Structures are given as structure tokens and as C-alpha cells.
Simulated scan of single mutants.
Amino acid sequence: MLELTSVTKRFGGLSAVNGISVGFERGTINAIIGPNGAGKTTFFNLISGVMPLSEGRIVIDGRDVTGLRADQMARIGVGRTFQSTTLFDNASVLDNLIVGHRIRTRSNLLDVVFGTRRLRDEEAACRRKARDALDFVGLAHIEARLAGDISQEERKRVAFALALATDPTLLLLDEPAGGVNPEETVGLADLIRKMKRSGLTICLIEHKMDMIMNLADKILVLNYGEKIAEGTPAEVRANPVVIEAYLGSDHAHA
């Protein structure tokens, strides 16, 4: 589904991501872990087209997508959430989601000026898609609430719904359980499994190790911008290099 070859990002003389090669299978949950400053968010920025590569190649579904911009990556099915969920707080939850599906529409300024059939049809489709996404993440009951009035956990779910509204096949989740309590974390993990069952391929950055070990099919471990390990949760947990760099010896026996 996603294949990265020698992916590198340099800022001046510093390599934030250095020569990473890895593949992620379709319909799997893949975690990217590592200490702060390991290059995880930069890695996501490269996959999603937010930043250009310094070197390397990105292939999605057999298509070389190296060099595509973020909007082009979104159109070919790469969805993304960010560490902090930025919403239009003075708009309703539903209106926030309608914006997300706009990437799939074709109406332009002339359609708006003349109130064309295409514009009306696309607005109705956007509303349907937004409601479907809200229903999927379990928030259909708050569609009319102002985004500024919802909880942190609900904001996380809205972020998922926003990404789903762009019709992705590959979903990048940046710290999806950041800032929520343990019970809410379990609920978000269940939602990520539901996304997998619906056919999505998921990559996530997360610091909550218990969540990752129970959720991921595959884990990629970064340190100082380099890949130091990859494998199943059991393989990563038992890897002495990972234990040394990140997990701590207590996790080796968990």
C-alpha cells in the first residue's frame, strides 16, 4: 500500500529524517514511535506532502507520488490529523466537516454566483458525507453544537471524522490519544480498529505504549531521524536496541 525508499529530509546540515525505507501493508494499523525529536512528525509531513523530500521515493498503490503537494496527496487518498485539533470554534461540528469534503467537489465561483444545479447537488453530497463521517465516529448527536463547546475527546473524534470526510484510503493519525484520559483512550483505540475494519490503512504516531502494543500490526521505531527497528509489537518489545533507546527495561518483561 505504502512503500518508502531512502526517505530523507535535511534542514541545513541536520537530517531530521535520514534514509528511511519501510513498507506498510494495505488494511493494517502501523505505529511510528520514538523519543521526542526522533523525526516522527517530519516523517508524516513527508508522506502527506506537507514538506518536500530531500532524497528518496514514496510509492502509494504502485504509483510514484514523490514530490506531490499536500492537496494532491489528499486527492489520491491520504488523510491526516494533527497533534492539535484546529477547528472553526464558532461554527457547528457539521459545518466543520462539510469543509473537509470540499476537496472532492468541482463547483467554482460561477456555480456560486448563479446557484447552479451542480453547486446544489455538491452541497447536498457534502452534507451527507459529513453526516456519515460523524455517525462513523459516534458523534451524530452533536452535529449542531458549536465546535468550541465540545470536549477534548470529542475534538479528537471530530478530527478523525474530518479526515474520513476526504475519502482517504491511507490515514495518518498524529497522536490521536494525546490529552485524553485512559477510558477515552480505549474508546479511541476501538474507533481506530473500526477504521481498519472498514478497509483503511492506518499509520499513527503515539506515545501511549500500552495502546500501541495492543493496537498495532506493525511498529516502526525512529531515533534521531533513523529507523532503529521495525516489526510486530512482540518483536519490538523484545528488541534490545529499542529497549535501550526508548521503552525502558520494564517494558521488556511486560
Rank of each mutant, 00 (worst) to 15 (best):
L2V: 13
E3N: 12
L4C: 07
T8H: 01
K9Q: 06
K9E: 05
G12T: 03
G12P: 06
G13Q: 10
L14A: 06
A16C: 01
G19L: 07
I20L: 10
S21P: 15
V22N: 14
G23H: 14
E25N: 14
E25G: 12
G27S: 10
I33Q: 03
N36H: 05
G37T: 14
A38V: 01
A38S: 06
G39V: 04
T41H: 09
T42W: 02
F43P: 13
F43M: 10
G49M: 11
G49P: 09
M51S: 13
S54A: 09
R57Y: 05
I58C: 14
D61I: 06
D61N: 15
T66P: 06
L68V: 08
D71E: 08
D71W: 04
R75Y: 10
G77K: 09
G79H: 02
R80Q: 11
R80V: 13
R80W: 09
Q83G: 06
F88G: 09
V93A: 05
N96Y: 02
N96M: 05
L97G: 00
I98Y: 08
N108S: 08
L109P: 01
D111Q: 00
G115F: 02
T116F: 03
T116L: 05
R117W: 11
R118Q: 12
R118C: 01
L119N: 11
R120S: 11
R120W: 00
D121A: 08
E123L: 12
C126R: 14
C126I: 15
R127I: 09
K129V: 11
A133M: 04
D135V: 03
F136C: 09
V137I: 03
I142D: 05
A144K: 13
R145I: 03
R145T: 00
A147V: 12
S151F: 04
E153L: 07
E154M: 08
E154S: 04
R157D: 01
V158C: 04
V158R: 10
L162W: 14
L162F: 14
A163N: 07
L164S: 05
A165S: 15
D167C: 05
D167Q: 12
P168Q: 09
L170S: 08
L170A: 06
L173P: 07
G178L: 05
E183N: 15
E184W: 00
G187L: 10
I192W: 09
R193L: 01
R197A: 14
I202W: 13
K208R: 12
D210L: 13
M213V: 09
M213G: 15
N214K: 14
I219S: 04
V221K: 02
V221T: 03
L222T: 00
N223S: 07
G225W: 07
E226K: 13
I228G: 12
I228L: 15
E235C: 05
A238F: 07
N239A: 04
V241D: 10
Y246P: 07
L247H: 01
S249D: 12
H253R: 14
